[in-house]
Nucleic acid binder design. Structure first.
Lengths: 231, 231
DNA sequence: ACCTGAACACCGTTCAAGT
DNA sequence: ACCTGAACACCGTTCAAGT
């Protein structure tokens, strides 16, 4: 890709020191991920958008991977903040909290798709890259496990293996978040403004249960139209 | 990243023409995504692994993005094949088929994480990049919608908005697939060999239903331990 | 038809020099 | 302390030349 000299999008700063370059670099990287995808992030373009020279970012980040990991960690901190706010607003009821945390997760992905995508790239946010993120995931999982245990103790969830419930809930919520962040929802005509309603509907389906008679064999099947055999 | 001259991993071919370069390039790209992530794919490295010069790939792909889109489309064809095989093996029961297609999707992601990740990057697989993938998603959705309608007609699924059921199922299955492809399952100690069991358990949770009494207010809450206020 | 290898603009990273 | 800008190896892409 050849770029001709871009018009200086930001006026040259008047001080020699930037003042808040680290944050400006993170912001530019997130914007690039959002606009063009993670592969389009280049340290030089990030520096350009922040109005500094090509070498300046390396005073703040060891290398490009460290910059991306910092984006992931910033996202993780935001997510924790929004989750805690949602928890503070929710009632004490374990199922309400369970659901509210899932909805907060989805809304985070909708609001910060750039952060969200980077946070979920193992090359940048895996445990070998960020112990912090690993710990945050672990404590989040532990809290959710606790909510499920309380709900089960109150007889409001089936007694079966809580890990399966936990994993199903996590998959549902992670999947919906990624459907938004990966643009699949947009393709289906579901815009960000519908995210809250959709998240409530979808978590409602999991809560309410889908199939009524799980273990019963199907009633004597009325003949269904056969599809043509594969040729 | 500085690379010293790599030992020629593949012996130089004896014919001037490669014979199957296009496929070799796709294979190398997928392997790179799997090993090091999508950002690590470079056309030159792909060419190196295929044993050809740096310019050769451009005889087969217009540019790097086209190569990645071709990876995505190859993945989509594999997925369609595996889904059709699973459908052929499943009974006529709509709920069994519904579930089998979800499990096939998850197993595809476990088996082909490189393809799967690229297939879900909007920059490479979005509708502006590949009409084929868009159509395949649409026909897959239509088939699943049909299964839900049949199940509802037989009284085996709740009558509510089928779109919510569809989206919940898609989120659950997509989420579990991505939990594997993004390495989250590995972090939780869930290896690929457990994928089938896990997919069955998780789809079972959605099918069986989670919360027993959805619309009832919680019983007069026994006092729960309060958390310290945020400071 | 298909592949090579030089060419050029661009990117990651370093580092001596500037403020 | 923090930023600049030249330097170098690498990457995307083109294209005249080779088979």
């Amino acid at each position: 890709v050849r770029r001709s000299a871009p018009p200086p999008s930001s006026p040259p700063r008047e001080t020699y020191h930037h003042g808040n370059l680290r944050q400006a670099l993170l912001d530019a990287a997130v914007a690039l991920v959002q606009e063009l995808g993670p592969d389009a992030v280049s340290v030089r373009e990030v520096a350009r958008r922040a109005g500094v020279s090509s070498g300046a970012p390396f005073r703040h980040f060891a290398d490009k991977t460290a910059l991306m990991t910092a984006v992931a960690e910033e996202g993780a901190r935001h997510l924790r903040g929004e989750t805690e706010a949602a928890m503070a607003a929710a009632s004490e009821d374990p199922i309400a909290r369970f659901r509210a945390s899932g909805i907060a997760f989805v809304l985070f992905a909708v609001k910060h798709p750039g952060h969200f995508r980077v946070m979920n790239m193992p090359e940048y946010a895996g445990p070998s890259r960020s112990a912090m993120i690993g710990e945050m995931v672990a404590t989040g999982t532990a809290r959710t496990r606790d909510l499920v245990a309380r709900a089960q103790a109150e007889g409001r969830m089936p007694e079966g293996d809580p890990e399966a419930i936990l994993l199903a809930a996590r998959a549902l919520v992670y999947g919906l978040a990624r459907l938004f962040a990966d643009g699949h929802c947009a393709q289906m005509g579901i815009g960000p403004e519908q995210a809250k309603d959709v998240a409530e509907a979808v978590t409602g389906v999991l809560g309410r249960g889908l199939v009524r008679k799980p273990e019963r064999p199907p009633q004597p099947a009325r003949p269904t139209r056969k599809k043509a055999k594969r040729r």
